[in-house]
C-alpha cells in the first residue's frame, strides 16, 4: 500500500519536476519529434497511402483511412512515448548518469523514483498527444478530417492513465535488461508488435479465437477503439471502461514487481 500512496508524496513530484526542468531546457529540439512525427505519419500514411485505399466499413459506418488512422496515432503516441521514456531514458538515468543514486541519498526513496519516472513518462506522453491533437485539428480545419471534439475530457485522462501503465511496463524491462543493447529484445519482440497489432494503424478483425482473446485483453486496442468511436461518432463504448480496468490492473500488478526488481538492481537488495 505504501508504494501506491507514494504517488501523492512530494518526493515523487520532485523527481517529476526535475525531469520537466531538463525537458523544458531543451524544448526547442525536444518538441520537434512530437510535432513532425504525426504530421509526417498523417501525410504519408493517411493522405498518401490512404488515397490508394477506398473508404471501408468500420463498425457500421463508412470511414476513410485517414479518419481511421488519426485516433490510432493518438493511442500509439501515448503508448510509445511512455514506454520509451520508462525504458531508454530511465535506464540512462539509472545506469549511466546515476541520477537515481544521487536522488536516493536524499529523502527520496526508490518508490518515489519509480513513481516520478512513471508520472513523467505519462505526462510527456500526454503532452505529445496534445500536440497530436493540434495536428489533427489542423487537418480537420483543412477539411481532410471530420471529428467530434466533445470527448476530449475523457480522452486526455485516459491517455495519461495509459502512459502510467505503459511506463510501468517499460520500467519492468529497465529493471531486468542486462545492458542497453538488450533493450532491442523487448522493443522489437513485444512492444512494436503490440503497438501495431492493436487496431492503431489497421483494423485487426478476425473470427480466430486467439485473435479475439488477444484483442479482449489488449488495453491499447481498447484505447484506440474507444478514442476512435468518440472522435468519429461521439459515441461512448465499452472499450473505455475496459481500457481503464486493464490499465488499473497493469499498474497494480507491475509497479510492485518493478519496485522489487529495481530494489535488487539499484540498492543491492537480495
Amino acid at each position: 500500500m505504501r508504494l501506491y500512496l507514494a504517488v501523492t508524496a512530494w518526493q515523487s513530484w520532485s523527481v517529476l519536476k526535475r525531469h520537466l526542468t531538463v525537458y523544458l531546457r531543451n524544448w526547442h529540439t525536444a518538441a520537434l519529434p512530437p510535432i513532425l512525427e504525426p504530421v509526417i505519419l498523417l501525410l504519408v500514411f493517411g493522405v498518401g497511402l490512404g488515397s490508394s485505399i477506398p473508404d471501408f466499413d468500420w463498425k457500421g459506418r463508412n470511414v476513410s483511412y485517414l479518419s481511421y488512422l488519426a485516433p490510432g496515432i493518438l493511442a500509439y503516441t501515448a503508448f510509445m512515448t511512455a514506454f520509451f521514456q520508462a525504458l531508454f531514458a530511465a535506464y540512462i538515468r539509472m545506469h549511466y548518469q546515476k541520477t537515481w543514486e544521487g536522488q536516493l541519498t536524499t529523502q527520496v526513496r526508490l518508490e518515489h523514483v519509480v513513481w516520478g519516472e512513471a508520472l513523467w513518462a505519462a505526462a510527456l506522453g500526454l503532452a505529445y498527444c496534445v500536440i497530436v491533437f493540434f495536428v489533427i485539428a489542423a487537418f480537420t480545419l483543412s477539411g481532410w478530417l471530420a471529428l467530434h471534439w466533445q470527448g476530449l475530457a475523457i480522452i486526455l485522462p485516459l491517455l495519461f492513465l495509459a502512459g502510467v501503465a505503459f511506463a510501468a511496463l517499460g520500467l519492468l524491462f529497465t529493471a531486468i535488461v542486462p545492458t542497453i543493447d538488450h533493450m532491442n529484445i523487448p522493443f522489437y519482440l513485444i512492444i512494436m508488435p503490440l503497438g501495431f497489432a492493436s487496431n492503431t494503424y489497421f483494423p485487426l478483425e478476425s473470427d480466430n479465437l486467439l485473435a479475439q482473446a488477444w484483442l479482449l485483453i489488449n488495453p491499447l486496442h481498447h484505447t484506440a477503439e474507444g478514442i476512435r468511436l468518440l472522435l468519429l461518432s461521439n459515441q461512448l463504448s465499452y472499450h473505455l471502461p475496459a481500457a481503464v480496468v486493464l490499465f488499473g490492473l497493469m499498474i497494480l500488478i507491475l509497479l510492485p514487481v518493478d519496485l522489487r526488481l529495481l530494489r535488487r538492481r539499484v540498492l543491492g537488495e537480495a
Binding site: R18, Q97, K98, T99, G102, T105
Partner: peptide
C-alpha cells in the same frame, strides 16, 4: 549527508 564512492551528480545541470 551522503557522499557516495561514485560521482552521482546530475549531469544535466
Amino acid at each position: 549527508g551522503v557522499c557516495t564512492q561514485d560521482d552521482t551528480f546530475d549531469t544535466d545541470f
